[in-house]
């Protein structure tokens, strides 16, 4: 399929590519919504206890992309978040560090400095997050700035308007261009599934992003409701599983937004385990985009180790 090239000009070749790309995406197996929801609910009823729960909590902590994406963010707030990312529970050094801290591009420098040598990555949203409504050049500049500031991961948003109106080539070409702008940084492509209307579209957008070079596909910006859901993540996990089977390349998955409790987090791990498989059960291939879930994970972790229920006053609010 040929869809690279000049995103501003319309060549004959691009038109053919568009038809081919659309045909490919619409040729993917359908998703039956009720069946997918039933499967997700069934997996969510798995009962994870004792030793399995302890392992799951630590794994979940290590997969967290600790996130702050507010207009009111300050350097101080970002530094506090970074401290928490490295030592989520200062009183217990056995708690693993999180995978990454996720901030706006202008906070990347602060985060990189705060996390130097810690092994915690710095992810930055870019490409006119969260709407994606900006000229490509602006998106690319946004991306380059974040990478130049030291971001190791870029979370881009797709142009949902283009995707939904059928201009899949535009989404494809923008993703390819952003991927190029990322250089060595990993690219996470946010599909904003809450705006995609159907699970069929989630599967198509997943394949579109993967074919354009995404290292990760991510559900949501967190600014739109619904954010991550189990059925949506199920479909995306199926997509990365099928994509690897077809191409040999493994792509990661990141549900983001709406994951608040340990119970939620463990449901996602079960989903990964039984859908994409154990190969995805590591921070390299699965992330949880969240912030408040971390304290609940810590609280449940302490309950398991002490045998008594803990309370929110014993964990830091950052």
């Amino acid at each position: 399929m040929r869809v690279f090239g000049d995103a501003w000009g319309v060549s004959t070749e691009t038109l053919i590519g568009a038809a081919e790309l659309r045909a490919f995406l619409h040729g993917l197996p359908g998703v039956d919504q009720v069946g997918a929801e039933e499967r997700a609910a069934r997996l969510a009823s798995r009962s994870i206890k004792t030793s399995a729960k302890a392992e799951a909590i630590d794994l979940a902590i290590s997969m967290v992309d600790l996130t702050t994406l507010e207009g009111a963010d300050t350097a101080g707030k970002v530094r506090a978040l970074c401290a928490k990312a490295v030592h989520p529970d200062p009183s217990d050094p056995s708690v693993p560090k999180v995978a990454a801290v996720c901030v706006y591009p202008d906070m990347v420098e602060t985060a990189v400095a705060a996390l130097a040598g810690s092994g915690v990555g710095v992810a930055s949203v870019a490409t006119a997050f969260p709407s994606g409504r900006a000229p490509l050049e602006a998106k690319l500049a946004d991306t380059r700035a974040a990478v130049a500031a030291g971001a190791s991961e870029i979370d881009m948003v797709i142009d949902r308007g283009a995707f939904l109106s059928g201009d899949v080539v535009k989404v494809f070409e923008e993703t390819v261009a952003v991927k190029q702008a990322c250089g060595d940084a990993h690219l996470k492509v946010i599909l904003e599934t809450g705006e995609l209307a159907t699970l069929d579209n989630v599967r198509r957008a997943s394949w579109l992003a993967m074919r354009a070079g995404a290292d990760f596909i991510k559900t949501s910006t967190g600014k739109i409701s619904p954010a991550a859901t189990l059925p949506v993540t199920l479909v995306m996990l199926e997509a990365v599983r099928d994509y690897r089977a077809a191409t040999g390349r493994q792509v990661g998955v990141k549900p983001a937004g709406g994951i608040r409790t340990t119970k939620d987090a463990i449901k996602y791990l079960v989903l990964v385990n039984e859908t994409a498989g154990p190969d995805w059960l590591s921070p390299a291939w699965f992330r949880l985009g969240a912030s408040s879930v971390l304290n609940d994970l810590l609280m449940q972790r302490r309950k398991l180790s002490t045998g008594v229920y803990s309370g929110p006053d014993y964990f830091t609010l950052d």
């Binding site: 039956d32 919504q33 009720v34 069946g35 929801e37 209307a197 159907t198 699970l199």
Partner: peptide, 11 residues
């Protein structure tokens, strides 16, 4: 013979 058919309702 009464035949009963089920189909999910979804999008």
């Amino acid at each position: 013979e009464v035949k009963t058919v089920w189909h999910p309702v979804g999008v």
